[in-house]
Design a binder for these strands. Structure first.
Lengths: 344, 344
DNA sequence: TTTAATAATGAAACCGTTATAATATAATAT
DNA sequence: ATATTATATTATAACGGTTTCATTATTAAA
């Protein structure tokens, strides 16, 4: 049917293996034959069949991105797509392609990963932390299957992962507040068992100590899960202790907090400064725009892709991890001048 | 190395073709042999090699999703990922997988599509309209390569596409405003040559006529590209004509318009109602929350996937198109009671 | 009983490449 | 002139399935 490497060989008057070597620009082929073969390929409109190549080479040049994104995920978590674009970018630069799998509600992540490995249809796996369960490490690490996890799982394992330092993020947030003159700093955290929120708090506390200050226990609230929760908690906090600044563990908290401040007819940042984490679309649009400690998730995705490709090239490589640095984006919620600037 | 179909055949004491037939549950195999073979597979931990299968079958059971997403696309256009999740869902239900390709800035979409087809590494293509140029139809339609375009290109072609009816969306928006008692309705459009914005305006005008009314020329503004633009334009519009409601061609316009209204200390919706299109994360978060005419992009992606698979199964199928219906989401920016409800 | 029809299995070609080992040719050293 | 080495090229066996067609075993009809 389609024109194959044999047709090219016949047309060029050489052997099949010679054509194959030309295709893979092997150095063992003379210039003259190379030209002959290339001409023949041109004449016949030959294009290598990747299915056959993958089969013969015993690899697919494709890696699989697995996540568990709820419907409306793009709204709740725009980061996911951004990460994926970063990975895709890194891969496509090296001739690899990205397959996307979104776990369904009831679907078992371990079973999926297992069958991905069995099927031999992918060379490596990028697992978003939302799709990691305790059974995963045995499948990947023990089987020495090339992989990288985006986000650090909350259990010990030999997985390769890439993540950010939430402790440092919290520290950066608190330091910024001190820099702009705030002293009585409050912290409103996410769910009681939200590790990310806890780490950010710890970082903030450490930073406060470095400034010879502290985040007082009565200024710390936890267990906030919705915007409305946050609004209620913030309102109470403000009434009772009237802090100069509030660190919000995440954007849900931030939105409620801003509403609470407005509700009490106080001004941001003059009466109370607000800072949060992770740059979301509305962070820029809010009034005032929100100062956040952000991580470049696109870049994180790229790094993940690069690490995975490195592992693919050199399978004997050790288990590796990587931590991306948070970046402060200063906006109107912490400083008067609206002009936003970037610091590290 | 790995256990192959031949090993299974030997272990089960049958021929290779019999094992193959068991794998594809051919009806020609007796129950007894089927069991024998399945036992052997179990004993040897056999798993079919998809690379080999794809090669032998001359297909890959994977389709490729191509888009041109700028960095920060998830923020500017969360819909893209949502569409993709819809496509992925439809495909994975039928044993197909989705490969994602994000066109780089300078990358030529036609060349990419061409090479995708040549490489024979994908069974079909889903093209987001952001990745469609005039060279595309010839590659896909003429070559009869299975494809579907999400969004309707602005030139005539024989492409299969799936899109929504912006005219109808505009009409729904206007009708809703009439229903809640607004009469003097204004329209603030996007860029001068923004077809979507124009169609929405046309729909709104038609609806107004049905109500024996009209959107007066002095209440129509066009060429708005940024939030700031929109704010300026809206401010002027309000000063001059003081409409009862403003239809915003998109969310950028809506944000500027809302700011302009607040700036003049007017109330939404009491003084001026606001309606826009496409549900964005901040649409729900804004105060008041924004009434929008939305399309279910996840579902649109699913439909696209389903249409493409149908075409794959039955290649003789005619060129098809599909139009998803817009849905009104009523929120606080057009009605007092905040309780949001859905209408069609 | 013989013959035809049907059901179950197997042999071998095929899919389009890569990879390995063997061979032919040219260049250099002995 | 011969042996050795280096350089190009080729023949052929993988890779692991599917598929077509022939063959055998079984059942039904003549």
């Amino acid at each position: 049917m389609a024109v194959s490497i044999r047709d090219v060989a016949r047309e060029a008057g050489v052997s099949v293996s010679t054509v194959s070597k030309v295709l893979n620009n092997s150095p063992l082929i003379s210039e003259a034959t190379t030209r002959k073969v290339q001409d023949a390929m041109e004449r016949l409109h030959y294009h290598p069949n990747m299915r056959a190549k993958n089969f013969a080479r015993q690899k697919t040049c494709s890696i699989t991105f697995v996540a568990r994104a709820e419907r409306n995920a793009a709204f709740n978590n725009p980061h996911l797509f951004e990460i994926m674009c970063g990975v895709e970018n890194a891969l496509s630069n090296k001739g690899y392609s990205l397959t996307f799998i979104n776990l369904a509600k009831e679907q078992d992540e371990a079973r999926l990963v297992e069958s991905l490995i069995e099927q031999k249809n992918t060379d490596g796996i990028v697992l978003h932390v939302s799709a990691v369960s305790k059974k995963i490490p045995r499948l990947l690490a023990d089987g020495n299957f090339p992989h990288i996890v985006i986000g650090k799982p909350d259990f010990e394992s030999e997985l390769c992962w890439i993540d950010t330092n939430n402790n440092l993020s919290g520290s950066i947030a608190a330091k910024h507040l001190f820099h702009v003159g705030c002293r009585r700093i409050a912290y409103i955290g996410g769910g009681e068992d939200d590790r990310i929120s806890l780490h950010r708090l710890q970082g903030a506390q450490k930073a406060a100590e470095e400034f010879g200050s502290a985040i007082l226990p009565e200024n710390i609230r936890q267990g906030v899960l919705t915007i409305e929760d946050a609004q209620t908690v913030a309102k109470q906090l403000i009434r009772e202790n009237r802090p100069e600044a509030i660190i919000c563990a995440n954007n849900t908290v931030a939105l409620g907090t801003v509403r609470a401040i407005h509700e009490q007819a106080l001004a941001i940042p003059d009466d109370i400064a607000v800072i949060s984490f992770d740059d979301y679309p509305y962070s820029r649009i809010m009034e005032p725009a929100l100062t956040v400690v952000n991580i470049d998730v696109y870049d994180m995705g790229m790094q993940a892709g690069i690490m995975l490709l490195r592992k693919l090239k050199n399978p004997s490589l050790q288990v590796q991890s990587y931590t991306t640095l948070p970046v402060l984006i200063v906006r109107g919620s912490t400083v008067k001048s609206t002009k936003s600037e970037l610091e590290s």
